[in-house]
Simulated scan of single mutants.
Amino acid sequence: MDDLRDAGTPADDSELAIEGALRPTSLTEFVGQQKVRAQLQLLLDAARIQRRPPDHILLSGPPGLGKTTLAMIVAHESGRALRMSSGPAIQHAGDLAALLSSLTPGEVLFIDEIHRMARSAEEMLYLAMEDFRIDIMVGKGAGATSIPLDLAPFTLVGATTRSGLLPNPLRDRFGFTAHLEYYEPEELERVIARSALMIGVGLPGPARDEISRRSRGTPRIANRLLRRVRDYLLVHADQTAGDLAAVDAALDLYDVDRIGLDRLDRAVLDVLIRRFRGGPVGLGTLSVAVGEEADTIESVVEPYLVRIGFMGRTPRGRIATPEAYAHLGVPHPTGALPLHDL
């Protein structure tokens, strides 16, 4: 089930091709995030009128909400080329210097997970963003010299799921910062309707609504669930049109329940409630008990459980709320306090 909601890349070329085809290519096609779209449109229009590259842009928010797609749209609507990289790939200042020095005038550079860049590369990026210049050190020790290298003007689009980890000097050099919010069910239904049309799947309104309610407020998950429904229809019904019953059967097969919880989500709640009596439990202990990496629980599972009120974070550890007990059908222990009383 992890591939239905994981923030990583698709498993094969066909999935990558489909995911790329479903991406909108303009702000008018992009569904949701109305305020961010309006702000970006103003930024791009002003840059076009002044015939200059758009200001540097920082996009933050949970995985799967459209940060990469918006970076592609910025390049497309600016009529510029797009260069893509990621923070983990830039672990030395030399890596960044090679990338920046190869940019063409006006090119858009997209760095995903920018908070994971090496500190030495971050410090080099400060000067590059502000003055379109970098200093390259030649030699070592007392004989080392700094050689300035001018860069072609470019637009940096940074994406991060953890904006709090960005140092203030880097964050301050972005001309525009936007935070992407989770989608409402009606917005996700519009995403699903558009995607279903593009991949040739016919679904009535109730079926689209069911997928949207199980998509955790995330378009990427909605599109992946839609593709699994398409697969189910092709294999079990030998057709590309389905109803609510077919959607229920397909998503139940992949262990996605009515509110979007999957096997790992329920495993975390089950361990927290049945083994540790609802907590509090430290993240490390919870990770060992479930048999999953702590980072996966913290970055993938926990945010959604906290958002829907099934888990709370306290100074002593994670706790399960009465709503989580009710969802799993486990009686709530007598005398336990609701989350808002802790």
Rank of each mutant, 00 (worst) to 15 (best):
I221L: 06
L342D: 03
T68I: 11
V36E: 07
S78F: 07
A320Q: 01
Y304C: 04
S195H: 06
F310D: 00
F110W: 14
P185L: 09
S85L: 07
P53N: 11
A7D: 10
F276K: 08
I134W: 13
L251E: 06
E107Y: 02
G312P: 01
F310T: 00
L103Q: 06
E189Q: 15
P315R: 08
P10W: 03
D13R: 15
H92E: 10
R230L: 11
G317L: 09
R263L: 08
G260W: 00
M129Y: 10
E130F: 08
L156E: 03
L188P: 02
L342C: 05
A324R: 02
Y126P: 03
L65I: 13
S146F: 13
P148T: 12
L16Y: 11
P53I: 00
L339D: 09
D243Y: 05
P153D: 05
N223Y: 00
L100S: 07
R307C: 05
R52I: 06
S163M: 09
G158D: 01
A246C: 11
L103G: 08
L188A: 10
A207N: 03
E113F: 11
P10G: 07
R263N: 05
R48K: 15
R274I: 01
P331Q: 08
R228D: 04
L197S: 14
I199C: 08
M124K: 15
H340S: 15
T296F: 12
G317H: 11
A241M: 11
L197M: 10
F176I: 12
G329R: 05
H327N: 01
M311N: 00
D12M: 09
G200C: 10
A93P: 01
V300F: 08
H76N: 15
D95A: 11
L166P: 01
I18Y: 00
A89Q: 11
V301C: 03
R171L: 07
P24T: 11
R171S: 12
E113D: 14
E15T: 05
F154M: 02
V31A: 10
L197Q: 14
T68R: 13
A178C: 12
S26W: 00
